[in-house]
Design a protein around this nucleic acid. Structure first.
Lengths: 188, 188, 188, 188
DNA sequence: TGCTAATCGAGACGGTACGTCAGGTCTTCTG
DNA sequence: CAGAAGACCTGACGTACCGTCTCGATTAGCA
């Protein structure tokens, strides 16, 4: 019955936030700064998003586009492509900081946990598809626990690129993929 | 020639900080709060540690005791024990928050990167020993990349317990260990 | 339904405002609050009154009823009654706050000055009548400056009850009336 | 034992505030504005004064210098001089606004009541002295209630200059002084 | 035994950001 | 087509921490 929330304001907030996130990093993404740059009132920011955290998650969700699953014909090849994409995305420092920031928010608040999960749905898609194709091909056991597989696939990369914060060479990536493939491929 | 820094003050700071970290979480571990609880002046805190971040890392380093490596006779058994210890330690929410906090600091500052690495040396020890024993036993390829192995071992657990923030059932742990063992065990 | 609706809204605004003024004081009488309690839109409030200040003055004007002038047979008696009425009215703190609030608005805006004057016409009536009766009785000089007399009569009470914010005992009121009467009564 | 509060900061705050009060009026004297103009941090303002209100009262107290009591030889003459001084001081609109502002603060808070009283001690001094001299001269009854006399003396001026916000001509001042003198002069 | 210099506690300092509230304007939908 | 509902921008609020600084009052070790 009342005036609807301004889509313009929302877009300007998201635009300002994404710029700050990319250029200055998540630590500089404060309510005051977003309001200043966007020209949108701080009150409006809070009306739309409730917290700056929610705004940041919204930015991530809006910018994480659904990528097509690669189809190289083998599990290892698909995973290689998926990992390469991840390493591309996680290249710039602000991106890695943002990832850790999201993890930290998700850890201590169920609300943000939900937002984080939502923001990660699409990136996980290709991996799930790759696994299903591998099952169809008979490469891996059809009874495999998809969640467990996800952790085996993504975990090592997170451990090296995020937790250890070290670059991943092609050589290391190959080794990692060998191990992961072996882990997923049930061999007698 | 002058008065040396007070060891008492240092200990009181560490004690206050560890209490705050355990009870209230890293977010509440501010310079003002540590100074207040410890009865030590903020100036002294900065004189001793430079930043509160450094104080936190010092607390972690001081409290991460060197655990003995388990020796169950098999790689899988040893890793199972190591993972169980990790899950015990990562049980309380403040502990997981602290871990992510350290990762985030390590990501955007080389100084903290170094501190984080130092704080992680001892916990990593048992895993390295377990791997060496496995090599000795002929369970795994002597030419294995230890670093890569570390990521394969720890990554999945971090992915599930920290990034996804979900509890790890015994069932899930078994599955994870199966996969990890398979990954490490060289196939001809 | 368009026009009569308007009068309803006006009345609801006045009713809500008077309640807030009496119960919570003029400081709580905000546009948001009046709109909320009355169920009338803020827009409508501004359309009708222009500012909340104007609304408050309208409330006062509507609630300051024309009192009959007392007729005790003497100037002193009449003034005593008038002062007692004033003290009754100025008893509750919100009423005194409201008075000062009106003075402050009247000082820095000619518009409110006019509204304040209008709101004070009726209360001044009895005093004027008392003075005219005193002239008719020969108690005071027919050439007396009515305005000056008003200030002599009301000033001391304002000074004590409003500016000093102190209660006025019967004893003090008598002394004050003695002085005022003496001031007005022309001595040869 | 700690660092003492900066007298410089205090002075800069008072200076900025007095400038704002004189130029823009009390309504513009906000914590943000005073902090901005003085170059002193807002936190420091609050540390020194607790509230901006307290700062304003401090400004008034600091700027209301102790005036010497006039000595014209007669009560009427002394009061004439005192009133003229008051009218001089209450000439600029910001000054009158400030007076009413202080009254309004004093009405709804005992803390400000006390500050207001303190700020008014010195201006009241000359009037008290004038009354005492009049008593010594035998002009007025030695048993006169000083407080009551103050209200008779100041009330009419407040009523006209502040409440009615109208200028006081010499002619009106004379009439007022006539009445006041008559009020104070005991008739047998 | 004194000097002397860095230590200590305490807390003030200039900042940045927080999340909220009120003001007055505007836009949309509904009766 | 007027009115309710409420979004909009502006700007002030008082608080929490940050890391630095200024104090007066201890110490410790060298002379």
């Amino acid at each position: 019955m009342a005036r609807p929330r301004s889509e313009t304001a929302r877009q300007r907030l998201l635009a300002a936030a994404v710029e700050i996130l990319v250029v200055d990093g998540v630590a500089s993404c404060t309510a005051d700064e977003v309001a200043r740059r966007s020209g949108v009132a701080k009150t409006t920011l809070y009306r739309h998003f409730g917290t700056i955290e929610a705004l940041v998650f919204a930015v991530v969700e809006a910018n994480v586009s659904a990528t097509e699953a690669p189809d190289t014909g083998s599990l290892r090849g698909d995973l290689a492509e998926i990992h390469r994409r991840y390493l591309d995305m996680a290249g710039p420092q602000p991106a890695r900081e943002l990832f850790v920031w999201m993890v930290s928010k998700a850890i201590d608040d169920p609300t943000y946990r939900e937002m984080f999960k939502k923001a990660r749905v699409q990136p996980r898609g290709p991996t799930v598809i790759a696994l299903q194709r591998a099952i169809a091909r008979g490469e891996i056991d059809p009874g495999i626990d998809i969640e467990a597989a996800m952790h085996i696939i993504q975990g090592p990369l997170i451990s090296q690129r995020i937790v250890d914060n070290s670059a991943v060479t092609d050589r290391e990536l190959e080794t990692m993929l060998d191990m992961i493939t072996r882990a997923l491929t049930a061999g007698p």
